[in-house]
């Protein structure tokens, strides 16, 4: 037993160190963003000055990122949910292959995808310079997450029988889709949506090549700030980013945590 307790303490200690490795820099950067002078420490006083500077200098990037991520969500919903439904219904080699293809933009580095988009559509002036060029990249990259998330839920329920049940009660195709399929994959759609918005908000690999000086997103602005401005401003900017993204991540955590299975007693009436 003593050996087991020692093992437990060792494992716990190790896990706490890992946890510190992940969380300490987050806290440090949040503090730095609120500290008057990071070099001389917190005793130099707390201030919102840096956050203010970020707001005046970079608020467009924040709005653009929110806008793009919402459009990206709409796009992945319209394209991804029906696609996931089809893939769940048809379990053939062909649908396997299509799924494999759809996931490719995640496997292929964003840098390569962005270059490919530029060499193909770079000449299309208005499109190249508008934020919809970035949007296309984001939809490409996040679509697999929506499809996977919805597909996972649809594969876990007996979709075929539920649809047959609805059909036996007179429901046509559209009624089945909206009354039965969509409500029953709500959790997958929600998890997928949070993932899509979070990823779109933070996407940098592709966006750095796709953006123009007039279409800077938040992560592009972050990279700018890290490279050229003082640590406090970079930190304040990161703080703003955290404030936007951490609630999404917490919601995602809460949503994907497995619920305890309820026990159903076999109670019968006479």
């Amino acid at each position: 037993m003593a050996e087991r307790r020692l093992l437990f303490s060792l494992q716990l200690g190790f896990t706490l160190v890992v946890c510190a490795f992940l969380i300490v820099p987050v806290i440090l950067s949040m503090l730095a963003g609120l500290t008057a002078n990071y070099l001389s420490g917190v005793q130099s006083g707390l201030t919102l000055r840096w956050v203010g500077e970020v707001w005046s200098g970079y608020r467009e990037t924040i709005f653009l990122s929110i806008g793009i991520s919402l459009c990206c969500l709409a796009g992945t919903l319209v394209l991804g949910v029906p696609a996931a439904y089809v893939l769940a219904k048809r379990q053939s080699a062909l649908s396997r292959a299509i799924e494999e293809l759809l996931v490719m933009p995640v496997a292929v580095p964003g840098l390569a995808t962005a270059l490919a988009l530029i060499v193909t559509y770079g000449a299309a002036g208005a499109f190249r310079t508008s934020w919809s060029f970035i949007l296309v990249g984001h939809v490409l990259f996040t679509l697999p997450f929506m499809v996977r998330s919805v597909l996972a839920v649809l594969s876990a329920i007996d979709l075929k029988t539920l649809e047959e049940g609805a059909a036996s009660l007179g429901a046509g195709f559209a009624q089945r889709f909206f009354h039965i399929v969509l409500p029953n994959c709500r959790s997958g759609i929600l998890a997928g949506s949070l993932m899509v918005v979070t990823l779109s908000m933070g996407e940098f690999n592709m966006t750095w090549l796709l953006h123009t000086p007039l279409t800077k997103t938040l992560p592009v602005g972050l990279a700018d700030a890290y490279a050229s401005l003082r640590l406090e401003i970079g930190s304040a900017y990161t703080l703003v980013f955290f404030l936007m993204i951490v609630p999404l991540l917490l919601a995602l955590q809460a949503l994907t945590r497995p619920r305890p299975v309820k026990f159903v007693a076999e109670e019968e009436q006479p």
Binding site: L22, G202, F204, P219, A223, I245, L249, Q253
Partner: peptide, 10 residues
Amino acid sequence: TLPLAFPGVV
């Protein structure tokens, strides 16, 4: 699992 979707720049 908090840093799950932090982008590379961050």
